[in-house]
Design a protein around this nucleic acid. Structure first.
Lengths: 123, 123
DNA sequence: TCTACGTGTCACCATATAGTGACATGAAAA
DNA sequence: TTTTCATGTCACTATATGGTGACACGTAGA
């Protein structure tokens, strides 16, 4: 089912940005109006905050309820649970084998990351 | 500790790309040489595959072991477990409250996503 | 030795994304 | 009604990212 994969993709990509993860942390403590979110995420401008919220809405990580001219943003924990659960389940069986292989490898010095990788890790 | 946050950030961002998630799936079944990975991810060019691998190495999701002129890429499941576990733990307490609030909201029609969101969800 | 091959790196392009200011809309309050 | 305010949308810029081809390097094998 392609739409489901796209849905997962939207969720992962939404979680890829630290600002959006912080937004979910805030919303997890309780729903917030868009204006309140703007206030919490200075110095970002309102449009930037709304774009991030839109990405979260597209991923169904945030549900919107309008009340007059105010918009309430609600955190929806279901997609995260699904994603994390699916990933952990998928790797649970392979995890021990992978760890054993890794242990054997790590005993020998693990080097050979590309220069790009070394450099960026330093920063 | 800032470095830890940066580390988490690298992990989330690495997982944000579907190609890289697929790569982890492949590597979870067993280590692969870079060349073998290139073969598995056609029609991507070698450089693209190596860039993705570099991102995964930076996030410590892939460990590298060199053997002569061959490079073996090993999947490291630890960071994913840590990340997913932390999120699930952090949200576990708030989850039930958030779900209850959501249920109340969802009873009323949930509308009001921006046009951008509606449009992109359609696609 | 010389050759072939796997890998590392560089320069470059196209697109996606984060961010901003300005303007439009619609509901609440004066 | 008029004004105010929260929100929605648009046009635009700058940077990050994914992707490619070409070249360099070092090791294994002929």
């Amino acid at each position: 089912m392609k739409s489901s994969l796209d849905e997962d993709d939207r969720i992962w990509r939404a979680l890829g940005d630290p600002v959006r993860r912080k937004m979910l942390d805030v919303l997890a403590d309780g729903p917030q109006t868009t204006g309140a979110m703007v206030g919490r995420f200075e110095p970002l401008c309102r449009t930037a905050v709304m774009k991030h919220l839109d990405v979260l809405v597209r991923a169904r990580l945030v549900m919107v309820k309008r009340e007059g001219r105010v918009r309430w943003n609600h955190f929806n924990p279901v997609p995260i649970d699904r994603i994390c659960g699916r990933w952990l389940d998928a790797h649970r069986r392979r995890r021990s084998a992978a760890l054993n292989r890794l242990k054997r490898v790590v005993e020998a010095p693990v080097v050979g990351e590309t220069e790009i990788a070394k450099e960026k890790v330093k920063q």
